[in-house]
Design a protein around this nucleic acid. Structure first.
Lengths: 209, 209
DNA sequence: CCGTTGGTTTGATATAGATCAAAAATCGCG
DNA sequence: CGCGATTTTTGATCTATATCAAACCAACGG
């Protein structure tokens, strides 16, 4: 397992708005986020853009590029970040030698597929407030998994970016936040979120239409 | 490469409405569709369901289950199908021995991620007719890639299923079909589609709002 | 400390697509 | 071949969210 270490010797730093990679870049490496967080987005010819995910420490980014050897989306730092570069050819060689690594890599890729399908469900069949509830619960879980408070956190992304991710306009996102707040489910102060009533937030999800 | 053959000795047949696997099934194999087509869908607790894809001959299905060893979605045959079962543990062993296979497997998984992100873009930022245009163009390309006519084909799925996939209600799908027909872009006779004016269909996509 | 800037909230209105409903077409089966 | 079941089309209406617009607020630089 410490063979893996020499892979990730290279650590790079990024500031807010820096690109980790851009759409069209040649694929060389996956990236393990060591600290900070990124957004990934697809740019569409006509200028439309769609945020496809928000990634935080411990997550692996760049999997989309394996298929064509070209990055199909771009990754932008949302704050100060540190990233380990994992050259993919070395990763492939190592994972032939180390079954556990191979398995791990497969799981990471599959997990991304499952994540994306979850978002398809969200975008395809949830209403605005359900989407926001799902988003907040997902963030909450991921913070918790990192030993951070699950019910008090700072958003690193704008309303606009949340909207793009959730398939909503920023005004709709803002209104949904306000509505949750007036229901006593969360407390919002711009980017500071406190989940006051986790159970109620969860029940927003199941609230069939 | 013929080592791969012994993997796929097992070929199974399915009829319309048969399940290839169900949500919750233990993961053992990926499946290569030899003929026919499937839909995959996620079931949500409250009964909602979301079609996450339509798969046809030559495509690999079941990648979502690698992450947890449990299938997270279910695959249902849309017609008579033949499927090769690819036991995943054997696939992993073989792909350690055969770098080309390893690479291929990685590309297949990555391609699925890219495909999913394309759908996120569609669901998150396209209007109804753009979505249907994108759907038809995608089918057209995939038929063409199989040496089938690109502009005349049979849909294997219902309006309802298309709607679920595109995040629309079946009535909306039906109206969009009708509208394309009255514009002379396509000719629809229930499930028989002819793309009359491919260029116009493509231009539906770029028609910014 | 104040003006500028970019992000956020809130309100008023418009609209794409959902919903409800019924007719029409197609399919499956005895 | 004909009848019931299912799917599709079409119409009328409703509603969630988009759009447009303005006010608000916090952060930043001079």
């Amino acid at each position: 397992m410490h063979k893996l270490d020499e892979l990730s010797r290279l650590k790079r730093s990024f500031s807010r708005h820096d690109y980790l990679y851009r759409s069209g870049d040649k694929f060389r490496s996956l990236y393990a986020i060591h600290s900070g967080s990124f957004k990934t987005q697809i740019l569409y010819e006509d200028g439309r853009e769609q945020v496809t995910g928000f990634q935080m420490a411990g997550e692996i980014i760049g999997l989309d590029a394996i298929s064509t050897d070209i990055h199909t989306c771009e990754a932008v730092a949302l704050e100060e970040c540190e990233v380990c570069e994992l050259p993919f050819n070395k990763l492939e060689i190592l994972s032939r030698e180390i079954p556990a690594l191979q398995r791990h890599l497969h799981k990471i890729m599959s997990r991304e597929i499952v994540r994306d399908q979850g978002i398809m469900l969200l975008l395809g069949s949830m209403r605005a407030e359900e989407r926001l509830a799902a988003f907040l619960l997902n963030l909450s879980q991921r913070f918790a998994a990192r030993g951070l408070p699950a019910t008090r956190f700072q958003l690193r992304m704008s309303r606009q970016e949340i909207g793009s991710y959730l398939g909503l306009k920023l005004e709709t996102v803002s209104r949904a936040f306000s509505h949750f707040q007036s229901n006593g489910i969360i407390s919002v102060k711009v980017r500071s979120i406190e989940i006051v009533n986790l159970a109620d937030l969860k029940s927003c999800l199941n609230s069939t239409r």
